[in-house]
Nucleic acid binder design. Sequence first.
RNA 1: GGCGUCGUACCCAAGUGGCUAAGGGAACGGUCUGCAAAACCGUCAUGCAGCGGUUCGAAUCCGCUCGACGCCUCCA
Length: 495
Amino acid sequence: MKTRAFRLTDSQSHQVKELQPVDKGHLKFYSCGPTVYSYAHIGNFRTFITADLIVRTAEALGWKVSYVSNITDVGHLTQDDMADAGGEDKMEKALKSKEGEAFANVWELADHYGNAFKSDWKRMNLRLPMVWPKATQHMREQILAVEELIDKGHAYETPTGVYFNVSSFEDYGKLSGNRDQDQLYRGVREVVTDENKQHPSDFALWKKDEKHLMQWFSPWGWGFPGWHIECSVMAMRYLGETLDLHAGGEDLIFPHHECEIAQSETLTGKPFANHWIHTRFLQVDGEKMSKSKGNFYTVRGLVDEEKVDPLALRYALLAVPYGKPLNFTRQSLRDAGQNVERFKECDRLADSAIQKGKEGDDGLGKTLNDLYEQALDAMCEDLNTSVAIAKALEGTVAIFKAGDSMSKVDGEAAKAYLTKINALLGIVRPDYEAEETATGPAVDETRVQNLIDERNAAKKAKDYARADQIRKDLDAEGIELRDTPEGTVWRLKSV
RNA sequence: GGCGUCGUACCCAAGUGGCUAAGGGAACGGUCUGCAAAACCGUCAUGCAGCGGUUCGAAUCCGCUCGACGCCUCCA
């Protein structure tokens, strides 16, 4: 295998630079996960897919990957910690909402959405992290970290909590560019802040709150941790004091990641992460998607209710490189579905060629291998998924050209190619067994097969009107028929 | 007010100084098929928001104009 550099845009320098693990060939990677107060939407998953593609590319390069993705289940307030008068914990707010009525308490709610998230994760063909740490499971470490920050003189206690003194950390703003903390508040319509804080930019490490539904006892009394401290603590707990790479959505650059840097580097005196990358937001029909606008799609809604092929959804979410805004539309989902079908069709063609066992070798393997190498090159160049997909699709043209007369050797080469493309992009085959889904009627396969048999009998009898009627009826149900040399096959039409 | 991104065909999108401006979707014509579907073949941007400039040479660099968008405020 030729040696390749894996290059990614670093959010701090805005330059594309080589990702170089401190331990050569062993990537220590932390990716910010969701706050589990609701079902994750496709925008969340664009970010998680970016992380997934990094893991897959690193694996393709033969690296070992220590991959951690957290689950936030406490401490994420509805209002920023900077202006934290009146901020409400997202988990508590969700419990009070209409959907929250189904849960006995906030712990159950967190558990439910956390599990739903993990199930969506698998359906989107995402690599499993080494660990999925939860904020609530690392309370002791968080409290210890806050104590240490106070001891070191970088944090102070007020009647409402413990705050990090931003002016005590010289590098504050190095990631986001928000260097001048006073400038930040000029032109902002209203600054609501805790009057006990020394500066509006100081952020909460611990909130005192005896009424909070999730609370722990600390040296500062009952309360709960601030949102930022969990990631610092869990990242360092599992991956060490300096990460090779830290990823997240673009909204997390400030304040979340800026605060993580301030806390972590103050604690260790070492760089927190050598490389930062951020996935740009997804838009829907040219508009920003957000919960407050209500124009958002969830994985569950599309896959369970609308029967969209999860692989098509994944394809649509990764077709545009992570550094550019992606405009998600019904059209983009249809395009994605078409191409995913091409891969699947090639997979069937390769299986059939292997089964037929025809002799010969038309050199398909060489062509496909070159294309795979080019696809991997594209992924190593800042995850250029557009080019990687283009190369992957060129491979399908080569496979289709070989067609039904493909030899066994070429069939095996095609199969191996698709396996490698799938390992890199995850858009050919599902990597996990399908889980039972509660919603939607299952297709009665026996009934469909009976109708196909009836249609074939009608065709044989040259009763084409009857044959076409059966095909038309099934099509109306969303089942598409296709007559192939191996017989009639059917598939569910997605979207 | 601060920080940042982008404008390439009907749609998505690659290309960041130099061969014919990748690839996909849609559309149209053809082959195959009882007819379809899938597949294959062919057609589909003398031009890259506009205007200037630099250069032997620019979609690519510089300036201005117009337009779209993101973060700083709930969000990945």
